[in-house]
Design a protein around this nucleic acid. Structure first.
Length: 576
DNA sequence: ATAGGGTTAG
């Protein structure tokens, strides 16, 4: 204790007065928060650069790190450019921070260029340098390259990887869904001298949850605890999220109690996971209770929490309650963002209150908020469903004019809407320029088109689309097969329809309730009663009930009393 | 004494 103090004194006594003054200001900025933080840091930076003698690189690195933590990567890089212009010598820390900034800006190549600079200057990159680059590759979705770099470092003995580097690789493997590889690496770490910490476990636990293997995740969590690695709030968040995603809210709530018992404080996001999950399940009541529970702990719901509530109320059609949530936000000075409003707009559209939706859509733009693809998608769907395809088309054009790229959902909404309004040739024309893009790799889009063309009276086009999809190597799903069975039957091609029913099973795609209903209904419509009977029995044996529309076709065909028939027996069995 | 890894909305 005495010793450190003496060292500290010596440090400050040799420093110039301005150095300690700047140190103080950096420290106070590190603890600060608020909207002026970036500007304050920039101002301090300017002051420091104007000082003679120039500030040391350590202080500048500290300050720039602050900027990096606020995700202002390009600003950080421009500050380094300035220090270079001032002739202040750089160091490896500064280089590493710069590499990280380039990686975060999706410029891994620049990162590697800086590595070359380091080497050219005869310096030795360190673990942080390499790790930053590996992570940069991971961030750029080049996990394979990241793993290759890691292997090369091992092979050429360029560095001795530590926990953090293994963690980066584990995280990368998880990101691309190679959870079992990640788990393997984790186990390897456990057996070695470089023991994994909670961060590495978290990556795998989260990945297992996303792979729908929540129980495995829970097991790993237990493993980890046994090994003396304490779970943190992120571990619990992942597990609670995983449990909620599979309807295991009760266990999730228990997990929350457990974590508090273990002395890990849940954060706003922990509760928001629960709120969101209850809302999606339709129980806003429970969601509101979760909000109360968080407030009781002195935590305050944020934009995300409130947005989840809005979604919950909209889902139940309780749009008035959703509106009230906006008021609650305003009272607490929480500013709704584009996602908040998009959910409300979607709620209005689903309630067929298109006028309200449109007004809000305009209003938020007047406020300076910029609608994103999802906002537009909701509006487009709303316009189509309220019987205004022309306005929808106009909005689509406007969105493109604004430089907003439509996504696959936009096209699904648009094509569905157009086909429904007998504009399937326009729809096809719209897609022509997209033929070689990945948008046309979407089975959902084909399903819409096939169904649309057939309903517009173009069964041949529909059949052609199905062939096209198969030729492309896309995998038809239940909906594709169902629509095609319906198309074939409508065209009187019963053999083809029946063949397709068998083929879909062979392809590992089981027919569902809709498939059978469509098949039976179409056969009945075409007076193929014996065939219909066969499939009716099959569907019932598989536990599927005829739906309303099938029944309507079925009832007039029940033979009169006294006459016995299979159909009659089936129906009696069903109605008894 | 300044750098590198993890969760998180539609």
């Amino acid at each position: 204790m005495n010793c450190t103090r003496r060292i500290g004194l010596r440090y400050y006594s040799t420093a110039s007065p301005s150095t300690s003054h700047f140190n103080q200001r950096i420290t106070s900025l590190q603890n600060a928060s608020g909207p002026t933080k970036v500007n304050d840091a920039l101002q301090l930076f300017d002051e420091m650069l104007q000082r003679q003698p120039p500030p040391n690189i350590i202080q500048l690195n500290q300050l720039i790190t602050l900027i990096v933590k606020m995700k202002q990567y390009s600003t950080a890089l421009s500050l380094y450019k300035q220090t270079k212009l001032m002739g202040i010598p750089t160091d490896l820390y500064a280089m590493n921070i710069s590499i990280n900034c380039h990686c975060r800006l999706d410029q891994v190549a620049y990162g590697f260029a800086l590595l070359a600079t380091i080497l050219k200057q005869g310096h030795q990159p360190d673990l942080a340098t390499y790790n930053t680059l590996i992570n940069g590759l991971v961030l750029a979705d080049r996990v394979f390259d990241a793993v290759e770099l890691f292997k090369k470092l091992l092979r050429d003995k360029l560095c001795d990887p530590n926990q953090i580097m293994y963690g980066t690789v584990i995280n990368g493997l998880c990101k691309v869904g190679h959870t079992s590889k990640a788990l393997e690496l984790l186990r390897y770490l456990e057996s070695g001298s470089c023991k994994p910490d909670v961060v590495q476990y978290n990556a795998v636990i989260d990945s297992l949850c996303k792979d729908k293997m929540v129980d495995h995740a829970l097991q790993l969590f237990a493993n980890m605890t046994e090994k003396g690695v304490r779970a943190d709030v992120i571990t619990y968040n992942s597990l609670i999220h995983g449990l909620c995603n599979f309807g295991r809210e009760t266990e999730a709530a228990q997990m929350l109690r457990d974590m508090e018992e273990e002395g890990v404080s849940p954060g706003v996001d922990t509760f928001t996971i629960l709120v969101d999950s209850f809302c999606k399940k339709g129980s806003v009541k429970d969601a509101e209770l979760a909000v109360q529970a968080m407030v009781r702990r002195g935590l305050h719901p944020d934009v995300i929490t409130y947005s989840a509530l809005i979604d919950g109320y909209c889902l139940r059609g309780e749009i008035d309650e959703a509106e009230k949530v906006i008021d609650r936000m305003m009272e607490r000075d929480i500013v709704p963002n584009i996602i908040t409003y998009s959910r409300l707009i979607d709620g209005y559209c689903k309630k067929k209150r298109i006028h309200k939706a449109w007004l809000l859509f305009q209003e938020i733009q007047d406020k300076g908020l910029i609608p994103d693809v999802i906002t537009y998608n909701s509006m487009l769907q709303g316009l189509f469903e309220s019987g205004n395809p022309a306005a929808a088309r106009e909005l689509f054009n406007k969105m493109q004019a604004k430089g907003l790229a439509p996504n696959i959902f936009t096209y699904r909404i648009l094509l569905h809407g157009m086909c429904k309004n007998s504009q399937c040739s326009d729809a096809l024309a719209l897609l022509r320029p997209l033929e070689s893009t990945e948008l046309m790799e979407d089975v959902g889009l084909y399903n819409i088109l096939i169904d649309g063309c057939s309903k517009c009276g173009n069964p041949n086009v529909a059949m052609g689309l199905f062939d096209e999809l198969c030729l492309k190597g896309l995998k038809p799903d239940v909906r594709t097969y169902t629509v095609m069975i319906s198309v074939y039957c409508q065209e009187g091609l019963f053999v083809k329809g029946k063949k397709l029913l068998r083929k879909m099973e062979e392809n590992g795609c089981l027919p569902n309730r809709v498939t059978y209903n469509v098949l039976v209904r179409e056969l009945l419509k075409k007076n193929e009663c014996e065939e219909a009977e066969i499939y009716l029995e099959e569907m019932i044996n598989r536990g599927f009930m005829p739906d309303h529309a099938t029944f309507e076709n079925l009832l007039p065909r029940i033979p009169n009393v006294g006459k016995d028939s299979r159909l009659r027996t089936i129906i009696l069995k069903l109605t008894s």
